[in-house]
């Protein structure tokens, strides 16, 4: 054979090495061929023939071994299954925890939406009710920023110049006076709360008609105070305080008349003080505002504090 370096003995016999190689190839070739024949016959018989019968007989012979092995392995397999199920349970728990977190977030969002809805509904009722001041239209606006600290008594609402809001417009809720607009941008407005040191509103005791000026109290958490109430004026604990706004053909106060502010919680008089010390708790919860009504004068004119 050309190109094949097979060493031959002088007597024409193959070397043992070549014989072994040939034998190997013959054996493997034979086994592969036998496997192919088995595959072909088994495939063609399709479970109904002598080979299938032999296979069934073989399976029956081997079945006891399989049953024995299955019985021996069952505890181990159960243990493996238990461990595996633990791992699966852990991953399931992690997935369910993520889903639970998502659902909780959705529930919280829906609760917030419901609460906002209820707040806006109350504002709407107030705007359409008899207590709403005349000569104003109410623009409902969501609060998008709250006081950042004890010294920043202001909120930001999601309505601005494009909605008709101007500086000094009064801001109320259905519960009472909140403050006034102090800055306006195109889509937002800053509202300075009554509890700010710079705020002041002329007010009166609704029951006794005693006048005064509502200012911030000693701190952001302290009630308001009704300042400049003469000692001879009659004010009582439990009386309601409301704005005492006024208007003339050319001028009007910032706040309309009759907007509720709060309730008198304390009245004190000393010989040295010129005025009665009156503390007022605001009706509106200024620390938890969600939506407010900005009072926009129907006919804007000159105003005075």
């Amino acid at each position: 054979m050309l190109g094949v370096s097979v060493r031959r003995h002088t007597d024409g016999k193959l070397s043992p090495r070549t014989t072994a190689s040939l034998r190997r190839r013959l054996v493997v070739g034979g086994l592969v061929l036998l496997s192919l024949v088995l595959v072909t016959v088994s495939f063609r018989e399709n479970g109904d023939g002598p080979l299938a019968g032999a296979q069934s007989a073989g399976a029956a012979v081997l079945r006891p071994f399989q049953v024995a092995a299955d019985r021996v392995a069952k505890p181990f397999r159960d243990a493996y299954g238990w461990t595996s199920s633990l791992v699966d349970a852990r991953s399931d728990a992690a997935r369910l925890e993520r889903e639970n977190e998502l659902l909780r977030q959705q529930v919280a969002e829906r609760r917030l939406a419901l609460r906002e809805n209820a707040t806006l509904r109350r504002l709407l009722q107030y705007r359409n009710g008899p207590r709403f001041p005349e000569g104003y239209s109410g623009l409902a606006a969501a609060v998008i920023s709250r006081p950042a600290g004890a010294y920043a008594q202001a909120i930001v609402v999601a309505a601005g110049r494009k909605d008709g809001i101007r500086v000094d417009d009064p801001v109320v809720t259905q519960d009472g006076l909140v403050g006034k607009v102090s800055r306006v941008s195109s889509r937002t407005a800053r509202v300075t709360l009554l509890t700010d040191d710079a705020s002041a509103a002329s007010a009166l005791d609704v029951e006794t008609q005693a006048f005064g000026i509502v200012r911030s109290g000693d701190g952001p958490r302290a009630p308001l105070r009704l300042d400049r109430v003469p000692k001879e004026a009659r004010v009582r604990v439990g009386d309601t305080v409301a704005t005492s706004g006024w208007s003339s053909p050319r001028l009007s106060s910032l706040y309309p008349r009759g907007v509720r502010i709060g309730q008198i919680t304390s009245v004190g008089r000393t010989d040295t003080d010129l005025y009665t010390q009156v503390q007022v708790t605001p009706f509106a919860d200024l620390s938890a505002l969600e939506a407010v009504l900005v009072l926009i004068p129907v006919d804007r004119g000159a105003t005075a504090p």
């Binding site: 086994l31 592969v32 036998l34 496997s35 192919l36 024949v37 088995l38 595959v39 072909t40 016959v41 088994s42 495939f43 080979l51 296979q55 069934s56 073989g58 399976a59 081997l62 399989q66």
Partner: peptide, 13 residues
Amino acid sequence: DVMTLGTLGTTSI
């Protein structure tokens, strides 16, 4: 192949 009653010869090849 016998124990699994599969096509005889496939695994053996």
